[in-house]
Simulated scan of single mutants.
Amino acid sequence: MLQVRNLDLSYGDAQALDGVSLDVPAGAIVAIVGANGAGKTSLIRTIAGMLRPSRGEILWKGRDIAGQPSHVVCDLGVGQVAEGRQVFPTLSVRENLLMGSMLARGRARRAANLERMFAMFPRLADRHAQLAGTLSGGEQQMLAIARCLMGEPELVMFDEPSLGLSPAMVQQVLGAVVELNRAGLTCVLVEQNVAVSLRLASRAYVLENGRVTLSGAGRDLLEDDRVRQAYLGL
């Protein structure tokens, strides 16, 4: 579904991505792991059209979308749940969700999708009139996921969805990702909890200093001594 080929990205003289290549098959959960500053968020933002690469291809169903504006990428079916949630704090929960359906692909089924999100996340239904900025961190993460789904994406990139959440809320949020995947959504997961993300992922890539240094089945990488020493403290 998504192929990245030899992707380079620089911030001025600093190279953030160096020849990154990866594949995301339809229906998979693909994890991208690495230390802070490894280039994970830069990769997600480049795929999403927020950053323009200096070299390489981003193939969405065979079409090169590298350098396309983010609204074009979204309307093709590539969604993003950004790090830090980034809800609209002065809008209500319902208004935030409706903002997610502004894309052309999400307008026709706006009402049905709104009901679907409230069924999927009952806490959002209970707080539909509440300002998003007054929600807890976990509730805001649920809202960010639901808002993205209002645009009917076929693939969603989750950037640190459990960051700053309580253990109980982490379980709920990552459980929602698993359930969405079981329902057919293709997922790219950038997650600080390396052990959990590798257990969930059918395939995973390790980024170090902007380069892919390891790749393979998630559970295979979980048993790799280099991964265990670098990221799991074992």
Score class of each variant (00 low, 15 high):
Glu57Tyr: 11
Cys148Asp: 01
Leu214Gln: 07
Met1Trp: 00
Asn193Trp: 04
Gly151Asn: 02
Arg182Trp: 10
Glu191Met: 10
Arg107His: 02
Glu57Ser: 14
Leu198Tyr: 11
Ala195Asn: 12
Thr134Gly: 01
Asp64Met: 09
Pro53Arg: 08
Gly12Gln: 03
Gly39Val: 00
Ile32His: 02
Gln68Lys: 12
Leu2Phe: 01
Leu7Val: 02
Cys148Val: 01
Ile58Lys: 07
Ser54Ile: 05
His71Glu: 07
Ala217Arg: 15
Val24His: 01
Arg182Glu: 14
Met142Asp: 11
Arg105Asp: 00
Gln140Ile: 02
Glu223Cys: 10
Phe121His: 07
Val212Asp: 11
Trp60Ile: 09
Ala28Leu: 02
Val194Tyr: 05
Gly106Arg: 04
Ile29Phe: 02
Thr46Ala: 09
Met99Asn: 02
Arg94Asp: 11
Leu91Tyr: 09
Gly39Glu: 01
Ala230Asn: 08
Asn96Gly: 14
Glu152Gln: 13
Gly62Tyr: 06
Gly84Ile: 05
Leu114Ala: 09
Arg109Phe: 03
Arg63Leu: 13
Val173Arg: 11
Val178Thr: 13
Gln15Thr: 14
Gly106Leu: 03
Val170Gln: 07
Thr186Met: 02
Met99Pro: 01
Gly137Ile: 02
Ser197Asp: 09
Arg226Ser: 15
Pro53Glu: 07
Ala132Asn: 12
Asp8Cys: 08
Met1Phe: 01
Arg211Trp: 06
Arg85Ala: 07
Ala31Lys: 03
Tyr11His: 14
Val20Gln: 00
Ser92Gln: 09
Leu185Gly: 05
Ile145Cys: 07
Asp75Gln: 05
Pro89Glu: 12
Asn96Leu: 14
Leu9Glu: 00
Asp220Asn: 08
Gly34His: 05
Ile47Phe: 00
Arg63Asp: 13
Arg110Trp: 00
Arg52Gln: 13
Met120Gly: 07
Arg123Lys: 12
His128Trp: 04
Gly233Tyr: 10
Ala38Thr: 05
Ala217Gly: 11
Ala31Tyr: 06
Glu208Asp: 15
Glu57Cys: 11
Leu200Phe: 10
Leu9Gly: 00
Ser162Gln: 10
Gln192Lys: 08
Phe88Leu: 13
Val178Ile: 13
Arg5Asn: 05
Val20Pro: 00
Gly56Tyr: 04
Arg45Glu: 15
Leu189His: 12
Gly27His: 12
Val190Ile: 15
Ala217Val: 14
Pro167Ser: 10
Ala112Arg: 06
Gln192Leu: 11
Gln141Lys: 10
Asn6Leu: 03
Gly106Lys: 04
Ala183Glu: 13
Asp23Asn: 09
Ser136Thr: 14
Phe158Trp: 04
Arg105Val: 10
Ala217Thr: 14
Leu200His: 06
Glu139Phe: 06
Val87Pro: 01
Leu124Pro: 10
Ser54Asn: 14
Ser70Pro: 04
Val194Asp: 05
Arg116Asn: 11
Asp225Arg: 15
Gly67Thr: 08
Leu135Ala: 14
Ile47Glu: 00
Gln229Phe: 08
Thr186Ile: 06
Gly133Met: 01
Met142Ala: 06
Val190Leu: 14
Leu97His: 03
Ala16Leu: 04
Leu17Glu: 08
Leu163Gln: 08
Ile47Val: 12
Val196Pro: 01
Gly138Thr: 11
Ala31Trp: 04
Gln130Glu: 08
Gln229Ile: 13
